[in-house]
Simulated scan of single mutants.
Amino acid sequence: MVASAGDTTSVFKKVLVSYFYVAIWIALSFSVIIYNKYILDPKMYNFPFPISLTLIHMSFCSSLAFFLIRVLRIVELPSSPAMSRDLYFSSVVPIGALYSLSLWFSNSAYIYLSVSFIQMLKALMPVAVYSIGVQFKKENFKSDTLANMLCISCGVAVAAYGEARFNSWGVSLQLAAVAFEATRLVLIQILLTSKGVSLNPITSLYYVSPCCLIFLLVPWFFVELPLLTNIFSLNFDYLVFGTNSLCAFALNLAVFLVVGKTSALTMNVAGVVKDWLLIAFSWSVIKDTVTTVNLAGYGIAFLGVAYYNHVKLQGLKAKEAQKNGALQTDEESGMLLDEKLKQRVSRQQTSS
């Protein structure tokens, strides 16, 4: 059967739209990372206050999400199940706490480490997610997966060994950020997904951002507020921090578009492209030193991550095929039962 010209055009348009959404996500993610680096780095904008920057982001996202949901009513809050007080404190609060720590530490790392090296360290995310998933019984322990995780870890270790501007404190901050983010992702599966709660980026920000804001106020009050009052005037750069916060909010919407219009696998592949672009940009524009050992180590880690994503994709395909097979079996059983009932009714009518 030959596909018509209309079908070919429709498929082509869908592919173009998918690539367009992916390009938007890559551009926004790229921009947020570089923008945060520019603001926090003492050699650039020189605002080395990661908690304050995260507070600005959370305040902006909370206000805009509230406006879109409560005033404009563009997005509806989940109704089945509804977000009760018990569900909020048992699920959203711990997720918000972990998210605040992840943002705080990841932004802090930009003060001490290069953009390229931070992207290399982020390759450890599958290792952290898998390890924590095994502890929480969300992942099954497998020796081949463990070997893959060790391969990724060794690759990152080689990249760290070749880092020209290695800073142990910065590495500790980024590794802590990875651990907190991985725990948050696992808890989302346990606390929200298992309870049937579905949140898009706007509703997620509506619930999680105020929680992050409250958690960050405590360390901000004791760590950064005294420094800010002594060093900086009360003049607030609305252009820089406003556009930076808008980019961060837009990035959350882009994540929703990419996952909704394409797939999680597409996003993972796009993430790899983004990482390589950031490494190239860090080396060519920011003039960060990227060594051959750096690239060799990250190459090993990249292959491990790619294989891990491939295995996960095959597992999802197998589950989908099994599910479709079960549905087909049920349909065939239903059709057979209907046929038997029809035959029985026909016999009864003939005998009567």
Rank of each mutant, 00 (worst) to 15 (best):
K317Q: 10
W220F: 15
P219G: 05
F67R: 09
F67I: 13
A182G: 06
A97P: 07
M149G: 05
L257D: 14
M267R: 13
D86P: 01
N36C: 04
V71F: 09
I26P: 11
N244A: 07
S284N: 12
N46D: 15
D7H: 06
S106F: 04
S90E: 07
I118P: 10
S204M: 05
Y130E: 01
K319L: 09
L103K: 06
I190A: 01
M44H: 14
S282R: 02
M125N: 08
K261R: 12
V186R: 00
L327Y: 10
S108N: 12
F30W: 05
D144S: 15
L205D: 03
S84E: 01
V273A: 06
L53K: 02
L72H: 06
Q174N: 11
V197Y: 00
F89D: 04
V129G: 06
K261H: 14
K287S: 13
T266S: 13
E332H: 14
P226A: 06
S168V: 15
E163K: 07
P94A: 05
I190C: 05
L313S: 11
G155N: 04
C154R: 01
H310Y: 14
A318G: 06
Y21K: 09
S52F: 13
T262P: 11
D41T: 11
Q348A: 12
G260R: 04
L199R: 01
D330A: 10
V258Q: 07
R344N: 15
F105N: 11
A176R: 03
N252C: 04
Q135R: 02
I56K: 03
F47P: 05
L68H: 03
F222Q: 02
V32S: 03
L228D: 10
S108Q: 15
S263W: 06
K13V: 15
A270R: 07
E76A: 08
S282G: 08
P219L: 04
V273R: 02
V11W: 03
R73N: 12
K137E: 05
S4Q: 00
W169K: 11
K323S: 09
I95E: 00
A179T: 09
D7W: 05
F215E: 07
L225R: 08
H57P: 00
V22R: 10
A160T: 14
P219I: 04
K37Q: 08
I74P: 00
S79I: 01
